[in-house]
Amino acid sequence: MIPASFDYFRPSTIEEAVDVLAGAGEEAKVLAGGHSLLPLLRLRLAYPTALIDVGRVAGLRGVSDRGDHVHIGATTTHDEVVRSPIVREHCPLVALATATVADPAVRHRGTFGGSLAHADPAGDLPAVALALDMVLEVRSSAGERTIPAAGFFLDYLESALAPGEILTGVRVPKLGPGWGFHYEKFHRTAQAWATVGVAAAVRQTNGTVEEVRVGLTNMGPTPVRAAAVEEAARGVEAGQNGALRRAAEQAAEGTDPPADLHAQPDYRMHLARVLTHRALVSASAHRSPLT
């Protein structure tokens, strides 16, 4: 990698990190696992003046059970998330989606918080964050605040993080009993980003769908919550022929999918409908926790 030159800081506490970030100017970037940022540096598509490497900041890494929610530290690697018994028990959708991120090498370096802060709609985790109503904890030299996932993803690669703010952790609400989950990822090669991805959570009682959460990956400049599907699926009999398919027909509503080498918008809309159906069927059939 031959990037343009930059200053490099490696704080060891979060206090130090936010102070360094505050003083490093608007063109500073926070570096965690580097798997989104380094490619941009390598291709000289980004010219940050300073990198603040939070990889060794104490307290940012790890998963803990906080009663009504699971807390995932921002620098927890994807691999740690996938293997966490707490995640697998209480928020299996996170584990299912994270397991599809790129390849094992990337999952051992890339971080949970980094994937969200990068706000790439083609990333697998932003849609999951939306579907599960995660809450993001951020910190700056001015103090701490929380941002609900629904308000975090503002535009393509643009989040609600203000200059000087660092994502420190994420609260994943526990959904309780009766839920099934699935992440349906459609991609051209195992390492490729999702052409379209569907994160689905379904709560049933005696075969009746009580509640549905659907987040869509790569169907717009931000991850998308498929509200129309959620509405349409509520109350249907999951086993009834065609019921979930009819609900999934709403999946492309309100989306604005991109055109790229792998898919044009109309194809992505079609995929969203087909994959949402498959995700709902699978989520209906699979119960948490993962074993």
Binding site: T189, A190, A192, L261
Partner: peptide, 15 residues
């Protein structure tokens, strides 16, 4: 347009 391996898809063993 296919200047990187994200755009020019060389399959791996997994594919």
């Amino acid at each position: 347009l296919t200047t990187t391996m994200a755009d020019y898809l060389v399959p791996s063993a997994a594919d």
